[in-house]
Design a protein around this nucleic acid. Structure first.
Lengths: 205, 205
DNA sequence: ATCTGAACCGACTTACTGGTCGGTTAAATG
DNA sequence: CATTTAACCGACCAGTAAGTCGGTTCAGAT
């Protein structure tokens, strides 16, 4: 069983480094050799574990990206409290460029979505699925917030979810060069303003 | 002078068709031969007019994309009225997938921005410049709106401009497959809600 | 009629990259 | 010790695309 362990270990290293470099330079701009060189592995090793570059990337999406999106954007939504501040917090957190050398996970989705959109329908599909799950969860938590009286009755939860996702994804195109504190601050502030307009009006008059 | 005219004509055709196909399939996923074939031109013709594929695309950006962004997103801002509805209208218009066979100009910016971000700093720079001009103009018209009493005094115009741009750019990643009426409608609705929160509070109490 | 040069042609070169394949290493097994 | 096989090596192949270059066409100047 020692061999199986080593196999898993190699695959794991391949996926981890792959995500790192694909995220850094883009999928099509990264050659397998780029990755293999950094891991001191050969073509043979790679094709022993994956049947193609595409298959490789799908593994990365399904194993690593899905996981990160869940951890950063979806699981935090599980709360009994007012969902609005929770959503703000999760987005703020996801835009954080990762402690030290880690990746800015929040950015990956938009980058890959755009890169594969016109190029590879299958991978596009997997990425869109992730967005859909996020959207469904956002809508769900918003509707719950409405029931709990945190959100005004007139609010279109699907529309709000769409708007949240759009603004979040769009931040990537603005924050290109690493982390831009100023932009992030502005984004969070405006998001809060927008959210205030979703709250029920205090009874008066 | 007949020759110069023909030269201009060919360059014009090259740029137009280039924008069309680059926009459709992406820059790196389009070979020069793809474009040349459609125009029945040769490699020699191309390199007679442009010194490289990169130079070619920069021409397209500077001549065509800049023009379109100005026409769709910047010039409409020149108004004496309440800027908020004007902005909504310009964005709505820019998201429109073009009458008939035209291009969805509104989408180009985000796509190219993402595609070149990690690949070509120079082109990235030109694209970012366009965004900056848009931002400056948005801020300017918002500040004017504040002076004219259309926008509340507490509003951070730079923040609002950033948020507008982010949400607009992000819509692209959601509206991938051509035009999605539903998504566009949701976007415009939420944008209006958001804008409502920027208006001065009517005096009461 | 001749000449010049801009516009254009297209085969070729060069560089890169995904994928293949025969061979090697070494751990596990009998 | 012999055999098997997962894991791995790296030279090689095939496809692709940017860019080159010697040659051709033809409008207009001399």
């Amino acid at each position: 069983m020692e061999t199986t362990l080593k196999s898993r270990e190699t695959m794991h290293r391949l996926c981890g480094k792959g995500l790192e470099i694909f995220n850094e330079k883009g999928y099509y701009n990264t050659s397998l050799d780029d990755i293999l060189k950094q891991l001191s592995l050969s073509k043979g090793a790679f094709y022993h574990h994956f049947k193609s570059k595409e298959d490789y990337f799908i593994s990365i999406v399904q194993n690593l990206i899905v996981q990160k999106v869940y951890a950063l954007l979806i699981e935090p939504l599980n709360t009994e409290e007012n969902p609005l501040p929770i959503i703000v917090e999760s987005l703020e957190n996801a835009l954080e460029p990762g402690k030290k050398n880690e990746m800015a996970y929040g950015f990956m989705l938009n980058d890959f979505l755009t890169e594969f959109n016109k190029r590879n329908e299958e991978i596009s599909g997997y990425l869109k699925d992730i967005l859909n799950v996020w959207e469904v969860n956002l809508v769900s938590v918003l509707k719950k917030g409405k029931l709990d009286g945190y959100i005004a009755r007139h609010v279109d939860c699907e529309g709000v979810a769409t708007y949240i996702i759009a603004s979040y994804l769009g931040m990537r195109s603005l924050m290109m060069d690493s982390s831009n504190r100023q932009l992030k601050y502005q984004y969070v502030q405006q998001l809060k303003h927008y959210f205030k307009s979703l709250e029920p009006q205090p009874v008066m008059a």
